[in-house]
């Protein structure tokens, strides 16, 4: 029994890396990297699209099949959530929210298949947050007009202009960093735990620790945290977008 192994750690160290670059090519002098994230995202899109295509095939109005019940449940849940949170006049907004939620949760859960989480790459949540950012400002311009929108920046007093701009810019940054930080912290903590437990196993010689404990940790970090962050992301998206619109103030 070598307790020294526990303190010294393994010679390989802990392996925490960014997403691997599969290949990169130049387009007009700009290097474009085809990373793991991109490939896995396209895989997710393909699988989800095929699944949805299969689930919505042969829709009927009478004696419906089991998969149609599931499809109807998904659609009515998403529409119900959007109606509850944003109000009835945002009914048409549900597909974006549903797509965001599906992409986020499958992107986090893909780590259970042994692939790298899409959301553990800062680019993915940042992209979603930027889309939301554009939607927030688009909604604002649409409801208040370009003059009213610009007037919103000098709302109480013109001195507030830099602070208002900063707080608008902080929205996508904090949204994306929250999602990314949660997922990547789960990844790092799981690998630290695995590392520590394998050191214990090495010093004792029996592999009883590495089997159970990481599974429980990954259940929390992957399943619960992945679901929670996807939910929080869409809730914040809905809150910000419906806030940008004056209609909810009644």
């Amino acid at each position: 029994m070598e307790i020294g192994n526990l303190l010294r750690g393994s010679p390989d160290g802990i392996d925490v890396r960014g997403p691997g670059v599969l290949c990169s090519f130049d387009v007009f002098g700009v290097t474009i990297n085809l990373t793991e994230t991109v490939v896995i995202s396209w895989g997710i899109i393909l699988v989800v699209a095929l699944l949805l295509n299969w689930i919505t095939k042969d829709m009927k109005t009478k004696d419906i099949s089991k998969k149609q019940v599931v499809a109807e449940w998904i659609v009515s849940t998403v529409y119900g959530l959007v109606d509850d949170t944003m109000g009835k006049h945002w009914h048409n907004f549900a597909p974006y929210i549903g797509a965001l939620f599906t992409f986020s949760i499958t992107g986090s859960l893909v780590s259970m298949l042994g692939l790298r989480s899409v959301t553990a790459d800062f680019n993915a949540p940042l992209t979603w947050a930027l889309v939301t950012f554009v939607l927030i400002h688009g909604t604002n311009i649409k409801t208040h007009g370009i003059g009213g929108y610009l007037k919103g920046y000098i709302d109480p007093v013109p001195v507030m202009l830099p602070i208002n701009i900063l707080s608008e810019l902080a929205t996508p940054v904090s949204m994306s960093l929250r999602h990314f930080g949660n997922v990547v912290s789960g990844m790092v903590i799981t690998s630290l735990l695995y590392f520590a437990l394998s050191a214990v196993t090495k010093s004792i010689g029996v592999a009883f620790m590495t089997i159970g404990i990481p599974a429980v940790a990954s259940l929390y970090f992957d399943l619960f945290s992945g679901f929670m962050q996807a939910f929080v992301f869409i809730m914040l998206t809905m809150a910000y977008i419906s806030n940008a619109d004056g209609r909810n103030e009644e």
């Binding site: 925490v16 904090s174 960093l177 930080g181 949660n182 790092v188 929670m228 939910f231 929080v232």
Partner: peptide, 24 residues
Amino acid sequence: MFIGCAVAESTGIYGLLVALLLMF
């Protein structure tokens, strides 16, 4: 409550990101 928790968590997440940067 979950939304509020997630928003309150962001300062902790920033600290965590700084720690992760320094480590890895």
